[in-house]
Amino acid sequence: MLKSLTSAALLAMICVLSATSHAQATTLSGKLVHVRDADTIEIATSRGRIAVRLNGVDAPELNERGGQAGKRWMQNPYSNATITCEFNGEKTYDRWVGVCWDKDGLDLGAAVIAAGHARDCPRYSGGRYRKFETPESRKHQQHNYCK
């Protein structure tokens, strides 16, 4: 019964997020329950568990230099923290794309870049995170999808 309810809730959430346009962003809050890497997190919301790709952030993959350190950095302050994400209606793989911030209003994308664990991804950010890049963050190779 619980599995059916969970599946129904997830289906309803997917329908809502799928119908979201750029003009009508969906905002959800939840606990950060898993960090895949420095630019992909999972939050548990009232609509179920949601994988979020941080919009405009280019972090190393786990098997790339700095990938594990970026994941650990994201886990340390944010595991089980309440995170709010505004989704733009786009999806990449199994992840909804959005901008997320913590309870104090700190943008997680800006924070992980300023900490040196990721770079601005100008193709998707429009350059909004460029000012947060540091000499350490610029050492990470920018992925081709960001150029």
Rank of each mutant, 00 (worst) to 15 (best):
L2Y: 12
L5V: 13
S7W: 07
A8F: 08
A8P: 01
A9Q: 15
L10R: 11
A12F: 10
A12S: 14
A19V: 12
A19H: 11
T20H: 06
A23H: 14
Q24R: 14
A25P: 13
T26C: 07
S29P: 08
V35D: 04
I41M: 06
I43K: 01
I43Y: 07
A51V: 13
A51I: 10
V52S: 02
R53F: 06
N55H: 09
E61Y: 04
E61S: 06
R65E: 06
G66V: 05
G67R: 01
G67Y: 04
A69S: 09
K71Q: 14
W73S: 02
N76I: 03
N80E: 11
N80P: 04
N80S: 09
T82N: 13
T84F: 07
E86N: 15
E86V: 13
T92M: 14
Y93L: 08
Y93H: 11
W96P: 12
G98V: 14
G98E: 10
C100G: 08
D104E: 15
L106T: 13
G109I: 04
A110F: 08
A111P: 03
A111L: 01
A114Q: 14
A115G: 04
H117V: 06
H117L: 01
A118W: 01
A118R: 00
A118V: 02
S125P: 03
G126P: 09
K131W: 06
T134E: 03
S137D: 06
S137W: 05
S137P: 06
R138P: 04
H140E: 01
Q142K: 14
C146I: 02
K147G: 13
